[in-house]
Design a protein around this nucleic acid. Structure first.
Lengths: 206, 206
DNA sequence: CGTCTATTTGAATGTACTCAAAAGCGGTGG
DNA sequence: CCACCGCTTTTGAGTACATTCAAATAGACG
């Protein structure tokens, strides 16, 4: 039932776009023709350090992460992308340069992918997508700015609380190691934070 | 000599755009008519918390900062903008909602500003600017992502070193308090970092 | 020269990390 | 059904990084 799966995947992307700006029948067909469904198995690379990021990916089902491995071998997660999120290394994609980042699947993941060339041709065929993608990146920018602000102004505990508030689903779905690598703290310390929260909401001084 | 000053201001913006994509004479005139020069004196607000960010600003001369004041009264600087940088609260500007951020001048500053309505009309009159501003925001996004990554993966010392490398001019121009508020550390600690660097490049163990 | 602000320095404290060991938790095979 | 393996999480003790608060010093400006 490959066809059925693909159909369902595209439907979710069409619905996603429709929530931003209503699409005409022609535009929907354009989306269907330009985006290709693809399955990544758990632990499979979507993008590997040193390669050019050739596609933009829309996650239909599952979850991926984008991360950097520093010179000490530690993993730092820049972004998770679960259902209805986009992922791609914009710098590598646009400048067609090798990426310093990795993207891989945390769960079996179905994406819709579009290549650089197909994206350009999509813009030309339907300029509306020019605006759609501008709005998307603006939203991403605003989100990222909020996260940075939070990062320079809050303790690890506040950052974790904020993560739980903003992504309650992910908190259950991801291992502690992943979340710690996203927050920029050690897994051990995250464990302590969690236990602190559950055990002593506000201990009076006896 | 108001006219001369304005003329010089616009020239620097035209040169800036020209470095991205060559402009026709008509497009240059469009820029000249849509962007207005404006002087902000040192300490003057460009945007104040609670107000809508109504313009995008291009800094011709001087330096401004965008920051948030947290609930404990501490200042956290999201971005500096000196010559040939843009500043604006994108979220507030696009959604026409009150901003949680402040922008003010660190030095006497000359900007070129464009209103939301004029920006839209610029896009309509010359679609090329659609692409120009998309590229600009993409670059900003990439920069911001790098900074976030650096923030979650580096010590204060490494972050300061990176700041000095990326913005060598600003390091001399800004007070220690401002730089500390940008890096997310205390001014006292930045003082110690600086002295450490200059005094003991690598002290051997006796 | 005096005032105001910015920077430096010191001592004590708190936040988060490191390293190591123990405990929990599926799976898988005997 | 139990025993063992590999992986994640928890816990402990010691340490390093960064903050707080206070006081001293240094610059900037009228």
């Amino acid at each position: 039932m490959e066809v059925a799966v693909s159909q369902a995947a595209v439907e979710s992307l069409l619905a996603y776009f429709g929530r931003l700006i209503p699409l005409t029948k022609e535009e929907k067909e354009l989306v269907t023709s330009k985006f290709q469904p693809r399955l990544f198995r758990k632990r499979q690379f979507v993008l590997q350090e040193g390669n050019v990021c050739t596609h933009i990916y829309f996650v239909v089902r599952g979850c991926v992460r984008m991360y950097k491995i520093d010179n000490k071998g530690y993993t730092h997660i820049i972004q998770f992308a679960a259902e209805n999120y986009w992922i791609n290394d914009l710098g590598s994609f646009h400048n067609v340069t090798p990426s310093a980042l990795n993207i891989d699947a945390i769960e079996d993941t179905v994406v819709l992918q579009i290549s650089h060339a197909d994206l350009i041709s999509l813009y030309i065929a339907a300029p509306k997508f020019d605006r759609i993608f501008r709005v998307l990146i603006e939203k991403s920018f605003i989100q990222l700015q909020k996260r940075l602000l939070h990062n320079i102004s809050s303790t690890a505990e506040e950052r974790y609380q904020s993560f739980v508030d903003v992504y309650p689903q992910l908190n259950n779905r991801l291992s502690q190691v992943q979340i710690a690598a996203f927050l920029g703290i050690t897994p051990e310390f995250l464990s302590r934070l969690r236990n602190r929260r559950s055990k002593a909401p506000k201990p009076p001084k006896d």
